[in-house]
């Protein structure tokens, strides 16, 4: 028996299929989010099932998570991304005590107890500063591809200070920096530091490690460093940070049956 986790996030949809007997990953896939997300998600799920060389009848359960989870009527149950992240991370890094998850539309801090159970969580989704969307806006303004952000910010000699708490105002601040002929790499590094600062505030003072970094933004090399410097704590990035939520959802689907 196999189990599927579908994470319908704000920017992308992720699917992970695991084998119930040993909880290993059999297949996974990702697609950009769109208007008809239930259809998009189903197409992706079908594709991952095909690629995994199994049949739909082999799927013993589907758990949906992410912003769009309630739109996926064909899922057996819906679980919040907070619980799914915790399950996904725990499977990969069993002794993790804090998760930093930065996605497209929100960022969250999840504190786990010594058994990997969620103790407390803090979310930022009122504004885009502190999320992947912020980086997208800035990369676009600087004419840099998102995937190259890490390479650029590594080169920064002196990161700019970006103090605005709102992406729209921050963008105006960046326009000012560009007008003053500030180097793009310094601006990018400044933006990453600004996101890291917001995350640090959310993490609070009494957090425990190991700290695990998940979500699409964890793919950008510069962010890990910015967060480590700000938190003054080492950070582990999971192997496939975009898929932790979907993986956790698949584990939860299996949990009911095994």
């Amino acid at each position: 028996m196999y189990f599927a986790g579908v994470d319908a996030g704000s920017r992308t949809i992720k699917v992970v299929i695991i084998k119930g007997s040993d909880l290993t990953v059999s297949g996974f896939g990702i697609v950009d989010q769109g208007v008809r997300q239930a259809v998009k998600a189903k197409e992706l799920l079908d594709k991952v099932i095909r690629n995994s060389k199994i049949k739909i009848k082999d799927i013993g359960g589907i758990v949906a998570t992410g912003y769009g989870r309630n739109a996926l009527s064909w899922a057996d149950s819906k679980v919040t991304e907070i619980t799914c992240q915790a399950y996904g991370v725990k499977q990969e890094i069993p002794n993790a005590r804090m998760i930093i998850d930065i996605g497209g539309q929100d960022s969250k801090i999840i504190h786990l107890d010594s058994n990997g159970i969620v103790n407390d969580f803090v979310m930022n989704d009122r504004c885009a500063a502190g999320t992947g969307r912020f980086l997208e806006v800035v990369a676009d303004r600087l004419e840099i591809k998102l995937k190259d952000i890490g390479r650029y910010s590594d080169k920064a000699a002196s990161p700019s200070k970006i103090s605005s708490m709102c992406v729209v105002f921050a963008e105006a601040e960046i326009v000012g920096l560009l007008a003053a002929e500030e180097a793009p790499e310094n601006i990018l590094a400044g933006v990453q530091n600004s996101i890291a600062k917001r995350i640090c505030i959310m993490a609070g003072s009494g957090f425990k490690g190991p700290v695990v970094f998940t979500g699409g933004v964890a793919l950008l090399p510069g962010m890990k460093k910015a967060l480590q410097d700000c938190l003054e704590h080492s950070i582990n990035v999971v192997k496939t940070p975009q898929f932790t939520g979907a993986f956790g959802a698949a584990l939860l689907a299996a949990k009911d049956k095994y």
């Binding site: 919040t80 619980t83 915790a86 969580f121 979310m123």
Partner: peptide
């Protein structure tokens, strides 16, 4: 912010059950 609050509340209830 109803949807945002609902998400946090659901996550809290999952935490309780977990």
């Amino acid at each position: 912010d109803t949807a945002r609050i609902a998400l946090r509340v659901q996550a809290l209830y999952e935490t309780v059950k977990g």
